[in-house]
Amino acid sequence: MHNNDEVLVRVEDLKVHFPIYRGVIRRQVGAVKAVDGVSFEIHKGETLGLVGESGCGKTTTGRAIVQLYKPTAGHIYFRDIDLVALKEEPMRLMRQNIQMIFQDPYASLNPRMTVRDIVAEPLVAFGLATGKELDDRVRELLDLVRLDPDFMHRFPHEFSGGQRQRIGIARSLALNPDFIVCDEPISALDVSIQAQIVNLFEDLQKDLDLTYLFIAHDLSMVRHISNRVAVMYLGIIVELADRNEIYENPLHPYTQALLSAIPVPDPEHYRKRSRIVMEGDVPSPVNPPSGCRFRTRCPKADQECEKGRPDFREVLPGHFVECFKVELPAHLKEVTTEENR
């Protein structure tokens, strides 16, 4: 865990529902429950990885935290200030502390703006620098992300995907934020470039004391960069633990299934491990299954799982799971409430 125990970001029971309208007068008949009750903390200086299948709600969570989507319910505390309760202008001012890096390097840069203008925009928006000072700052930022500052008068389409992503990173650093939400920042890049960018992320974190929420669907990449990992399924977090803990000792059947699907180059190891296969398709977020959401695809599900949602409880120190069927390895003992850390 981390030396610095200061909680920078605390998400409390976050819900983001998108209404569906049907009928003659357009009444609301239901909602897509993209995020349906998510809670976690992020400590200063750490990287929380957020993983899950497409459509599980991880990107929506990230965007809700940055207030690009208005949460339907819940609170998002940044240093004890509830972002959900803020009005438009105070929230705008808060953006100097919270930034975001987007997934698609081809869509996240305005094709009509030069690199300089793109990276300088946050500074201009808050009136923090002008003229030569502004240019110098832009050069500094481009340097940080290892791009040649002389390129600042070029247009985005002249750069490769990896370079564009660096420009996006430079932009997000312009305001010296404390916290950055990284929404699948490497998913759109070639594999060889992914490694460079991840390394860049780590170096920046060390040098600038950044805190990340790192959203991704590539489990092995997340393992490398995260301190803790949260696994999402159908709008809720099913497991949250230290990075190594979750990879070596996954307790939720969904996590176990995901990890068992990671390709392994070692044939011996491959044959030895057990492969857990999930049945069926992901249910619709409009109508999640009653009781435990995962029960329709879970190899361990039984009648107990239909009765209600399991509690999201701390089964081992720092290791939270939402499941009725947690099986601890023999040598570990379950944490009882009195022994709670």
């Binding site: 930034q99 975001m100 946050p122 932009r171």
Partner: peptide
């Protein structure tokens, strides 16, 4: 809804400026 418009919002650009500098020209 394009990413670069969202990015401008996240960067703290005011609503009107987003309309005139990012949305309309494109």
């Amino acid at each position: 809804e394009r990413d670069f418009v969202l990015a401008a919002k996240v960067s703290g650009v005011k609503k009107n400026r987003i309309l005139f500098k990012h949305v309309l020209p494109n």
